[in-house]
Deep mutational scan, measured.
Amino acid sequence: KVLVLALYDYQEKSPREVTMKKGDILTLLNSTNKDWWKVEVNGRQGFVPAAYVKVL
């Protein structure tokens, strides 16, 4: 399983997205889209901007 680090806070803007806080460790589920990556955080799955996270 691939983990990513949240570099910035992100507030979800649609039901398909998830909120994350800077420093959160998320599970990367899909990174085929260069702009939006699907992650799991706190038991929820959704998209975050790829530029806001870094693969650990």
Score class of each variant (00 low, 15 high):
residue 7 L to N: 03
residue 35 D to R: 07
residue 16 R to D: 15
residue 43 G to M: 08
residue 45 Q to K: 13
residue 52 Y to I: 08
residue 43 G to D: 10
residue 51 A to F: 11
residue 44 R to D: 05
residue 49 P to Y: 02
residue 50 A to M: 05
residue 54 K to Q: 14
residue 39 V to H: 00
residue 23 G to A: 03
residue 33 N to F: 09
residue 12 E to I: 07
residue 34 K to R: 08
residue 18 V to K: 02
residue 1 K to A: 15
residue 45 Q to N: 10
residue 29 L to P: 00
residue 21 K to G: 05
residue 31 S to P: 12
residue 56 L to A: 05
residue 55 V to H: 08
residue 16 R to C: 13
residue 16 R to T: 15
residue 54 K to T: 14
residue 28 L to S: 02
residue 16 R to F: 15
residue 15 P to Q: 11
residue 54 K to M: 14
residue 17 E to D: 06
residue 9 D to C: 04
residue 53 V to Y: 00
residue 47 F to A: 03
residue 32 T to I: 12
residue 20 M to Q: 02
residue 26 L to G: 12
residue 25 I to R: 06
residue 46 G to Y: 03
residue 30 N to Q: 13
residue 38 K to F: 15
residue 54 K to I: 14
residue 32 T to G: 11
residue 16 R to M: 15
residue 23 G to Y: 05
residue 28 L to E: 01
residue 39 V to W: 00
residue 28 L to F: 03
residue 29 L to H: 06
residue 23 G to N: 07
residue 26 L to K: 00
residue 43 G to T: 08
residue 28 L to I: 05
residue 48 V to M: 01
residue 55 V to I: 14
residue 18 V to S: 03
residue 54 K to R: 14
residue 33 N to A: 12
residue 36 W to L: 04
residue 21 K to L: 10
residue 11 Q to D: 15
residue 27 T to M: 13
residue 50 A to W: 01
residue 34 K to S: 14
residue 11 Q to G: 09
residue 43 G to L: 07
residue 16 R to E: 14
residue 9 D to S: 08
residue 8 Y to I: 13
residue 55 V to L: 11
residue 17 E to P: 04
residue 16 R to P: 06
residue 38 K to S: 10
residue 47 F to Y: 13
residue 42 N to Y: 09
residue 10 Y to V: 01
residue 28 L to D: 00
residue 23 G to T: 02
residue 14 S to D: 13
residue 53 V to E: 00
residue 25 I to N: 03
residue 46 G to P: 00
residue 17 E to Y: 05
residue 23 G to W: 05
residue 8 Y to K: 12
residue 37 W to S: 03
residue 51 A to N: 14
residue 26 L to E: 00
residue 20 M to N: 00
residue 19 T to I: 03
residue 17 E to L: 06
residue 51 A to H: 12
residue 35 D to K: 11
residue 49 P to R: 03
residue 29 L to C: 06
residue 23 G to H: 06
residue 19 T to Y: 04
residue 20 M to S: 01
residue 48 V to C: 05
residue 35 D to W: 13
residue 50 A to C: 06
residue 30 N to Y: 08
residue 17 E to M: 05
residue 42 N to P: 09
residue 7 L to E: 05
residue 55 V to A: 07
residue 22 K to T: 09
residue 36 W to Y: 10
residue 10 Y to T: 01
residue 5 L to V: 14
residue 21 K to F: 12
residue 38 K to P: 02
residue 20 M to K: 00
residue 1 K to W: 07
residue 31 S to N: 15
residue 29 L to T: 06
residue 1 K to F: 13
residue 7 L to I: 12
residue 12 E to F: 05
residue 21 K to W: 10
residue 37 W to A: 05
residue 10 Y to W: 13
residue 15 P to E: 13
residue 32 T to R: 10
residue 27 T to C: 08
residue 18 V to C: 06
residue 39 V to K: 00
residue 3 L to P: 04
residue 51 A to T: 14
residue 18 V to G: 02
residue 21 K to Y: 11
residue 26 L to P: 02
residue 24 D to A: 08
residue 10 Y to E: 00
residue 24 D to T: 07
residue 20 M to F: 10
residue 44 R to H: 11
residue 53 V to M: 06
residue 11 Q to I: 15
residue 8 Y to F: 13
residue 46 G to Q: 02
residue 18 V to M: 12
residue 13 K to Q: 15
residue 4 V to I: 11
residue 30 N to F: 07
residue 36 W to G: 01
residue 18 V to H: 03
residue 36 W to Q: 04
residue 4 V to D: 00
residue 44 R to F: 07
residue 6 A to Y: 01
residue 30 N to R: 06
residue 25 I to T: 07
residue 39 V to C: 06
residue 33 N to C: 08
residue 50 A to H: 04
residue 42 N to V: 09
residue 8 Y to C: 08
residue 9 D to N: 09
residue 22 K to N: 05
residue 39 V to M: 02
residue 29 L to A: 03
residue 6 A to C: 08
residue 4 V to N: 01
residue 19 T to D: 04
residue 8 Y to E: 12
residue 5 L to M: 15
residue 45 Q to W: 07
residue 28 L to T: 01
residue 38 K to R: 13
residue 24 D to V: 04
residue 15 P to A: 14
residue 49 P to S: 02
residue 44 R to T: 08
residue 49 P to F: 03
residue 15 P to C: 09
residue 55 V to F: 13
residue 39 V to Q: 00
residue 56 L to C: 07
residue 53 V to S: 01
residue 1 K to M: 12
residue 54 K to G: 12
residue 45 Q to G: 08
residue 20 M to G: 00
residue 30 N to C: 12
residue 4 V to K: 00
residue 22 K to L: 06
residue 36 W to N: 02
residue 50 A to L: 02
residue 11 Q to F: 13
residue 10 Y to K: 01
residue 34 K to A: 14
residue 8 Y to L: 13
residue 1 K to G: 09
residue 20 M to E: 00
residue 1 K to V: 15
residue 15 P to L: 11
residue 34 K to Y: 07
residue 29 L to M: 10
residue 33 N to T: 07
residue 7 L to K: 05
residue 42 N to I: 06
residue 55 V to T: 10
residue 17 E to N: 06
residue 51 A to M: 14
residue 36 W to D: 02
residue 3 L to A: 06
residue 24 D to L: 04
residue 35 D to G: 08
residue 2 V to M: 13
residue 23 G to E: 03
residue 25 I to P: 02
residue 51 A to K: 13
residue 24 D to K: 03
residue 14 S to G: 13
residue 50 A to R: 12
residue 13 K to W: 04
residue 21 K to N: 12
residue 24 D to H: 04
residue 37 W to K: 02
residue 41 V to F: 11
residue 31 S to L: 07
residue 3 L to K: 10
residue 33 N to G: 15
residue 55 V to C: 09
residue 1 K to E: 14
residue 23 G to Q: 02
residue 50 A to F: 02
residue 48 V to P: 00
residue 25 I to S: 03
residue 5 L to W: 05
residue 47 F to D: 05
residue 23 G to P: 00
residue 8 Y to H: 15
residue 49 P to H: 02
residue 47 F to I: 08
residue 1 K to C: 07
residue 19 T to N: 07
residue 46 G to M: 05
residue 13 K to A: 11
residue 41 V to Y: 12
residue 36 W to V: 03
residue 35 D to M: 12
residue 54 K to V: 15
residue 34 K to M: 11
residue 40 E to P: 00
residue 32 T to A: 14
residue 10 Y to A: 01
residue 49 P to G: 01
residue 52 Y to N: 07
residue 23 G to I: 01
residue 2 V to W: 10
residue 3 L to C: 08
residue 22 K to C: 07
residue 48 V to W: 01
residue 24 D to Y: 05
residue 33 N to E: 14
residue 3 L to Q: 11
residue 45 Q to D: 09
residue 5 L to N: 03
residue 9 D to F: 04
residue 2 V to A: 11
residue 52 Y to E: 02
residue 48 V to H: 00
residue 4 V to R: 01
residue 19 T to C: 05
residue 55 V to P: 10
residue 51 A to G: 10
residue 10 Y to N: 01
residue 26 L to V: 07
residue 41 V to A: 15
residue 17 E to F: 07
residue 17 E to H: 08
residue 30 N to G: 08
residue 34 K to P: 11
residue 41 V to L: 13
residue 2 V to N: 08
residue 17 E to W: 03
residue 32 T to N: 15
residue 31 S to K: 12
residue 32 T to C: 10
residue 5 L to C: 07
residue 27 T to N: 08
residue 30 N to K: 07
residue 27 T to F: 10
residue 36 W to F: 09
residue 25 I to C: 05
residue 28 L to R: 02
residue 15 P to I: 09
residue 34 K to F: 07
residue 52 Y to V: 06
residue 38 K to T: 07
residue 19 T to Q: 05
residue 18 V to F: 09
residue 55 V to G: 05
residue 54 K to L: 14
residue 7 L to G: 03
residue 18 V to A: 06
residue 25 I to L: 08
residue 20 M to R: 00
residue 44 R to N: 08
residue 40 E to C: 10
residue 7 L to R: 04
residue 1 K to I: 13
residue 7 L to H: 03
residue 49 P to D: 02
residue 14 S to A: 09
residue 10 Y to Q: 01
residue 2 V to L: 14
residue 56 L to S: 05
residue 36 W to I: 03
residue 18 V to Q: 03
residue 2 V to R: 10
residue 20 M to D: 00
residue 8 Y to D: 12
residue 50 A to D: 02
residue 16 R to L: 14
residue 14 S to H: 11
residue 16 R to Y: 14
residue 34 K to C: 08
residue 5 L to K: 10
residue 4 V to C: 10
residue 26 L to S: 03
residue 47 F to H: 06
residue 44 R to P: 01
residue 51 A to P: 09
residue 17 E to S: 07
residue 40 E to S: 07
residue 19 T to E: 04
residue 56 L to M: 09
residue 51 A to R: 12
residue 24 D to S: 06
residue 10 Y to F: 08
residue 33 N to M: 09
residue 26 L to Q: 01
residue 39 V to E: 00
residue 41 V to E: 05
residue 26 L to D: 00
residue 25 I to F: 06
residue 36 W to C: 05
residue 14 S to M: 08
residue 49 P to T: 01
residue 41 V to R: 12
residue 39 V to S: 00
residue 47 F to C: 09
residue 22 K to E: 10
residue 5 L to F: 09
residue 46 G to N: 01
residue 55 V to R: 07
residue 46 G to C: 03
residue 6 A to K: 00
